[in-house]
Amino acid sequence: MSQEKIKITTGIDSLRSEIRDKSVRIIDVRREEDYKQSHIPTAVNLPLANLLSDDSPERVLKLVNAMGIDDQTPVVVYDDTFGALASRVAWTLEYLGHSDVSLLETTFSKWKSLGLENDNKTPEIQHKEHSIHLKPEILATSDYLDTSKDKPNVLLIDNRERLNYLEQHIPGAISLPYRTLATPDKILRPKEDMTRLLGNRGISGNSEIITYCGSVGTLSGLAYYALKSVGLPNVKLYVRSFKEWKNLEKPIAKQQDANYWDLSAE
């Protein structure tokens, strides 16, 4: 496991050379109209909403094949939402069994603001055949949470904003807002920084870690990659997140007797 090379993000400079070498499949997960206006050259469009309308492995397989991705194709995903939407797509590919998927280290706006190349051409795609080797070890379901979340070696992490967490969260979860994970320029902090920050919070070593957020596993998807980026071996995403948890009327915890919302300037 530790031998395996984990590449979580792809740098701007290396993506540009991979584009030149035509050795990469880039997925732009923004809305179709944004994609059509401009995108990173050679990128294909897979709006997150499209993926989420049915993210069963069979459907995902079709999408992946149609994007010309086989088991060996290196994939880089980007968005304009601090990496959260891209993370959710990358995680879905990983779950399907694709092993070479990473996130662009920055957002499309940042890419553009640096004056880097972009166009509005839709690339010609050659259909490919991908296999299915599901990775259930990176998925957490509500049933799984029920049985495991209170075990001593399991950490449950809530990636929503602090006020939402204070108001309600899954009992036992700790708060790590998604904003904490980024720097102004990059979707994830540098490794050393991230390690220290997580270490302070007791997130380290060989715990099993489950991340969740508000609804569809985007913010927590980013956290999933943040945790992987420092080499934590056992991370799971509770994709259906707090929305499902609430709908199932499972227990909820709250920070009592304080009017924290009134400190917010919004």
Binding site: E161, R162, L163, L166, S175, P177, R179, T180, R201, Y260, L263, S264, A265, E266
Partner: peptide, 22 residues
């Protein structure tokens, strides 16, 4: 944004305060 509640507070004594920090 990263460690508090997405707001900060200007106090009466020329401090800026960040609340609900872990």
């Amino acid at each position: 944004e990263q460690f508090s509640i997405g707001s900060a507070h200007f106090s009466t004594r020329e401090n800026i305060q960040l609340h609900w920090v872990i």
